[in-house]
């Protein structure tokens, strides 16, 4: 029994190597391997806060602001305030997580609007990419009816949520189209949805027009663009990555992401401009940007 064991182990190891090589080569032809060491987290923090006020000559009232250790709360303290006094709290918020964050809500709680006027920068509906910062200002205005020796309070809550989607690689899209064309497996994105995406791309793109008379023809047309041969020319490589980026874009999976400070829309515009004007020397640059964006997930 003993002499057979090493042979079996060798065979198993060989099989493992062969399988992993097969997997690697398959992954390479389908957009490469992307390893993200960063655990996908979503977090916003206040990182800087400064204060100022409308007092020029006199220094009567004082405003201070502090960020707590967790970075999720700013505590503002205004002392010796009086009617017409106005304090400004300038803050910087940073996305310290790995995923884009969307500002959803802004709630200002002011129990004494007759005495206090609170205004603040409205970040609602904007996206903040990972490591990106956004600045804002909150203004506290003490109004005429404010009482003497009184304590007023206010609260501002900024609600945000994490980007649930993420860009997918060219390989992912190739699989979706292949599977939608009944060649293999079950698609994660249904064929009807893929067709809708192509319609959306048709209406916005100056490069891509999927004019097939049937859905399958249109899907096949897209798959042909994505399915570039290994030795394809740079223009076709760019078009393949650009189409994958377009698909991510119309799927809503690019919101909040940036590559080199560029949004998906910036890269789409740049790539299409290069293709339209035959800026061949730029093809490589835009292909790489599309590729990087598609691999952000």
């Amino acid at each position: 029994m003993k002499p057979t064991n090493p042979k079996i182990f060798a065979l198993i190891i060989l099989a493992i190597i062969a399988l992993s090589l097969t997997g690697y080569s398959y992954a390479c032809t389908n957009g490469g391997i992307h390893i993200d060491c960063c655990y996908p987290t979503c977090d916003l923090k206040f990182i800087i806060v400064t204060t100022s006020d409308n007092e020029v000559e006199k220094n009567v009232a004082y405003v201070t602001a502090q960020i707590n250790c967790a970075g999720d709360t700013i505590t503002v303290c205004i002392t010796n305030a009086y009617p017409c006094y106005r304090a400004y709290i300038n803050y910087t918020i940073k996305n310290t997580g790995c995923k884009p964050v969307h500002f959803d809500t802004l709630t200002i709680t002011n129990d004494h609007p007759e005495a206090l006027e609170i205004t603040t920068t409205n970040h609602t509906c904007i996206w903040l990419s990972s490591c990106e910062t956004v600045k804002g200002t909150t203004s506290v205005h003490v109004l005429q009816p404010a009482k003497q020796n009184w304590k007023y309070t206010f609260q501002i809550k900024i609600g945000f949520s994490c980007q649930e989607g993420y860009p997918h690689t060219i390989g992912y899209w190739k699989n979706q189209f292949s599977e939608a064309l009944c060649k293999s497996g079950r698609p994660q994105v249904p064929a009807a949805t893929l067709d809708q995406y192509l319609t959306l791309i048709n209406s916005q793109s100056k490069i891509f027009q999927f004019t097939g008379t049937t859905r399958n023809l249109r899907l096949q047309q897209a798959l042909n663009i994505l399915n570039i041969p290994y030795n394809a020319i740079m223009k076709d490589k760019l078009k393949a990555q650009l189409l994958a980026l377009w698909l991510n874009y119309v799927a809503g999976w690019t919101d909040g992401y940036k590559v080199n400070g560029k949004t998906a829309w910036d890269i789409i515009q740049g790539s299409e401009y290069a293709l339209l004007h035959n800026l061949t020397s730029d093809y490589g640059k835009w292909k790489d940007l599309c590729d990087q964006f598609n691999n952000l997930g």
């Binding site: 979503c42 977090d43 916003l44 923090k45 206040f46 009567v60 009232a61 999720d72 709360t73 700013i74 505590t75 503002v76 303290c77 205004i78 002392t79 010796n80 305030a81 009086y82 709290i89 803050y91 918020i93 959803d104 206090l116 609170i118 603040t120 909150t138 506290v140 003490v142 404010a146 009482k147 003497q148 020796n149 009184w150 304590k151 007023y152 309070t153 206010f154 609260q155 501002i156 809550k157 900024i158 609600g159 945000f160 949520s161 994490c162 649930e164």
Partner: peptide
């Protein structure tokens, strides 16, 4: 929880008025 991840950041303010 991951798919519905939401949170808030807050600013709390206290204003003490002076006297005349």
């Amino acid at each position: 929880t991951y798919s519905r991840w939401t949170d808030i950041i807050t600013m709390l303010g206290t204003i003490n008025t002076g006297s005349l």
